[in-house]
Simulated scan of single mutants.
Amino acid sequence: MTTEQQQLTDIRNQIDEIDRQIQVLIGERAKCAQKVADIKTQGGKVDAVFYRPEREAQVLRAVKERNDSVLPDESMAKLFREIMSACLALEQPVTVAYLGPEGSYSHASVLKQFGSSVVAHPVSTIEAVFEAVEKGEANYGLVPVENSSEGVVKSSQNELMRTRLKVSGEVEMEIHHCLMSQSLEHAQIKKVVAHQQALGQCEQWIKNHLPGAEVEAVESNALAAKMAQADATLAAIASEEAAQLYQLNILDRHIEDYHDNNTKFWVVGKDITQPSGLDKTSLIISIHNKAGALLDVLECFSKRNINMTRIISRPSTEKTWDYVFFIDVIGHKDDANLKEALDEVETKSAFYKLLGSFPVSPL
Rank of each mutant, 00 (worst) to 15 (best):
A194G: 05
D73Q: 10
A108M: 11
I126W: 06
M1A: 14
Q42W: 10
Q58D: 04
S282T: 08
M227T: 09
L71R: 10
I255N: 05
D260H: 11
D47S: 15
A232C: 09
I126E: 05
A228G: 13
Q6F: 13
Y51F: 15
S220W: 08
I26N: 10
E17A: 11
A33R: 12
S69A: 02
S276W: 10
K226F: 08
I285Q: 04
I126F: 11
E74Y: 07
A222P: 01
N158Q: 14
I206S: 03
A341Y: 00
A120F: 06
S181D: 11
V345G: 09
L179N: 07
E346S: 13
K191F: 09
I272S: 10
E28Y: 03
E256C: 12
C178R: 11
Y323G: 00
H186I: 12
R12M: 15
L354Y: 01
K31E: 08
L298A: 11
V218P: 07
V218N: 07
I327W: 05
V152Q: 05
T2C: 06
R164C: 06
K353I: 05
S349V: 06
K290Q: 15
R253E: 06
H259V: 00
S148R: 02
Q244A: 13
Q204H: 15
T41P: 11
M173T: 01
G43P: 07
L223M: 14
S181T: 08
I330F: 08
H107G: 03
C32N: 07
L8A: 10
Y105Q: 04
V329Q: 01
G43D: 06
L223C: 10
N221P: 00
L355G: 09
V345W: 11
K45G: 01
I287Y: 02
E4K: 12
W205R: 12
S181M: 09
